[in-house]
Design a protein around this nucleic acid. Structure first.
Length: 645
RNA sequence: GCCGGCUUAGCACAGUGGUAGUGCACCUGAUUUGUAAUCAGGGGGUCGCAGGUUCAAAUCCUGCAGCCGGCACCA
């Protein structure tokens, strides 16, 4: 029998007969190693410990507390959950149950819906199954055998899965006691290795194979960790994230509200609107510096115009329409691009005018599916920091890179430096010839390569086939917030179609009419969404320049009222957003209220401060008080409150 | 849009067939107070909307809407 060489993490190696299993190797080293090992990694890839090893490899034995075991714990927990569900509700079909970020799920086909109290029942049954500590064993079945088995068992989704497995792959069946599942593996040695640190978190409906044309299954989400401490820490983290929810903070901080009569539409309150306007003036300044020209285009235009642009055909189901008394049908704009093309078309353009950058803080209306609405993060009326750049074909790379630089510098001003860019290519439903799509996609792919190269690998990228806009492919900028969640904000789209459809052209250096290429781009994306993201990112504790109310001046005794008002008006003259709190309350009461309202700077003034013309400053999140001369305080706060850039 | 859940005072919640409650907030009065809740008194809800069952509905049933958690869709 031939021998193979196994190399261990410490660099040592040993020769064993080909076909020796991981378990045998572990046992040969020490019984205790074999006992605590739940799986192995061969050349870094997880494998069943019982697998025979047939080739030279580096081998690493995985204990259940190793980081590498986490996905196995979760995957095994998903199997155990499926067994538990079938034990409790015979006749339920199992489908798929993968590990996902932070946990796992399993989708079931069951006639009756799960009830809220079922989670606890399933958890209990899972505990029993885990306690039995049945070994996971693997068998390779033939297609026919597997289909026969699942058909008899009434597992029709599994039959479909068997058919979907490529012919060159083994069809693996994993057994845990009497229960079995089709699965690509690997698994740990036995169910007991899952441990007790698992929790089922929620139910959801989910379409079979993620397609809304398919039947809907019932999904149960759960998570599992090696230790209870890690599970508790995770649950705590979820709780903390909930405290940042922009819907909750928006209400508490009196920024905005929603109501039934306008689903998906924001009622901006004064403080929220101040924040919104602060963002707009910041962006306006950035765009002015970058050579954009700001415009404004109509919110409603006649339907035939949207037919011409292709929106009616490709985006019509998302559009709000209204029939006027004269029976003409108008559409609320879901995008600003066609309007900007009209502005471009007004007056003959020369190649010398390009690139022409037209920007608008345009409010667009999109009829989003009711189930998609989510606070400010998904609304039906939102304001884009939109722009359309009209260029010649050979300006694409240069302009996209400029946009990229601007985008990154803007995100940096808000503290977002962890950026992820996705390239979305042609969707099925689209306008324009394929050779134009080829060019547009190639252009963006080149831009992406260049951006990645320039960032020295700091920026991560990905490809999303079929996810582009109907008129062109796009780069989507996703940023990571303070607690690691990702949000899609900016987008850059290269469009060879729309200008031509709407009859826009410029005169080139040979006096010929040429259709310009358009770049569609937004950086915040939606101001509403970006505001929501900022609220959650900062947990309401905005940096001074963004805070809707920057300072409150609170006298400690009414004798200091006059001085407090003087301080406040001096701050206001210095450009700060300041209010006074002259109420007849104790200073601790005022401090508490303004802290809860997340005002970044609380200035308390009593007789002492009035006499020496100073202020006592308390910053949000700190209990420290600093007494500073009034003039110094004003200068320092005004400086800190300056808009970046 | 789909699956499940929820909807009671400004906010957070209790109340599972017998004329609606608590805390905070709000209003009034007293208190002049040194950094996260001063005390006392008072007002406020046709229980999401529309039907139905019942002698009687916040409570049971049906429909609709909105919201929440996902799925699908997406800035």
């Amino acid at each position: 029998m031939s021998e193979i060489t196994l190399t261990f993490p410490d660099g040592k190696s040993r020769n064993v007969p080909a076909g020796t299993t991981g378990l045998e190797v572990a046992k040969s080293i020490s019984p205790s190693l074999a006992k605590r090992t739940v799986a192995m990694q061969l050349d870094g890839a997880l494998a069943d410990l019982a697998d025979p090893i047939n080739n030279d490899a580096t081998i690493n034995f995985v204990a259940r507390t190793d980081a590498a075991a986490l996905e196995l714990i979760r995957h095994d927990a998903a199997h155990v959950m499926a067994e538990a569900v079938q034990a409790l509700w015979p006749g339920t079909q199992v489908t798929i149950g993968p590990v996902i970020e932070n946990g796992f799920f399993y989708d079931f086909a069951k006639a009756e819906p799960f009830l809220p109290e079922d989670l606890a029942k399933i958890e209990k049954k899972m505990g029993e199954i885990i306690a039995k500590n049945a070994p996971f064993t693997k068998e390779v079945w033939s297609r026919d055998q597997a289909k026969e088995h699942f058909r008899k068992a009434g597992e029709l989704f599994k039959v479909e899965l068997v058919d979907a497995i490529p012919a060159d792959q083994d069809l693996k069946i994993y057994k845990q006691g009497a229960w079995l599942d089709l699965c690509r593996g690997p698994h740990m040695t036995s169910t007991g290795a899952i441990g007790k640190a698992f929790k089922l978190t929620k139910f959801a409906g989910a379409y079979w194979r993620g397609d809304s044309n398919n039947p809907q299954l019932q999904r149960i989400y759960g998570t599992a960790f090696a230790t209870q401490e890690e599970l508790d820490a995770y649950l705590k983290q979820i709780e903390e994230a909930e405290k940042r929810d922009h819907r909750k903070l928006g209400r508490e901080m009196d920024l905005f509200h929603f109501q039934e009569e306008a689903p998906g539409s924001v009622f901006w309150h004064p403080k929220g609107w101040t924040l919104f306007q602060t963002l707009i003036s910041y962006m306006r300044r950035q765009q002015q510096k970058a050579g954009y020209l700001e415009v404004n285009s109509p919110d409603m235009m006649e339907k035939h115009f949207w037919e011409l642009s292709g929106h009616w055909e490709n985006y019509g189901e998302n559009m709000f329409t209204t029939t006027l008394p004269d029976e003409r049908v108008f559409c609320c704009k879901p995008m600003n691009c066609p309007g900007h093309v009209q502005i471009f078309k007004h007056g003959l353009k020369s190649y010398r005018d390009l690139p022409l950058k037209i920007a608008e803080f345009g409010k667009v209306h999109r009829y989003e599916p009711s189930g998609a609405l989510h606070g400010m993060l998904r609304v039906r009326h939102f304001t884009q920091d939109d722009a359309h750049i009209f260029i010649t074909e050979n300006q694409i790379m240069d302009e996209c890179l400029k946009i990229n630089d601007l985008m990154l510098s803007i995100y940096k001003d808000f503290g977002f430096e962890d950026i992820f860019i996705k390239l979305s290519t042609r969707p099925e439903k689209r306008v324009g010839a394929d050779h134009l799509w080829d060019k547009a996609e190639k252009a963006l792919a080149d831009v992406l390569d260049e951006v990645k190269r320039r960032s020295n690998g700091r920026i991560k990228t990905a490809l999303q086939p079929g996810e582009g806009a109907f008129y062109g492919p796009k780069l989507e900028y996703t940023l990571k917030d303070a607690i690691g969640r990702e949000w899609q904000c900016g987008t850059t789209q290269v469009d060879f179609n729309l200008a031509g459809r709407l009859g826009a052209f410029y005169i080139d250096e040979h006096s010929q009419k040429v259709t310009p290429v358009m770049i569609h781009r937004a950086m915040f994306g939606s101001l509403e969404r970006f505001t929501g993201i900022l609220i959650e990112n900062f947990a309401g504790h905005f940096p001074l320049w963004l805070a809707p109310q920057q300072v409150v001046v609170a006298p400690i005794v009414s004798d200091a009222d006059a001085y407090a008002m003087e301080v406040a008006s001096a701050l206001a003259r210095a450009g700060l957003r300041v209010e006074t709190d002259l109420r007849n309350e104790k200073i601790s009461y005022k401090v508490r209220e303004h802290s809860l309202a997340k005002v970044p700077v609380i200035i308390a003034v009593g007789k002492r401060e009035a006499e020496e013309r100073s202020v006592s400053i308390r910053r949000l999140g700190s209990e420290k008080q600093t007494v500073t001369p009034l003039d110094e305080a004003i200068a320092a706060l005004a400086d800190e409150a300056k808009t970046p850039g």
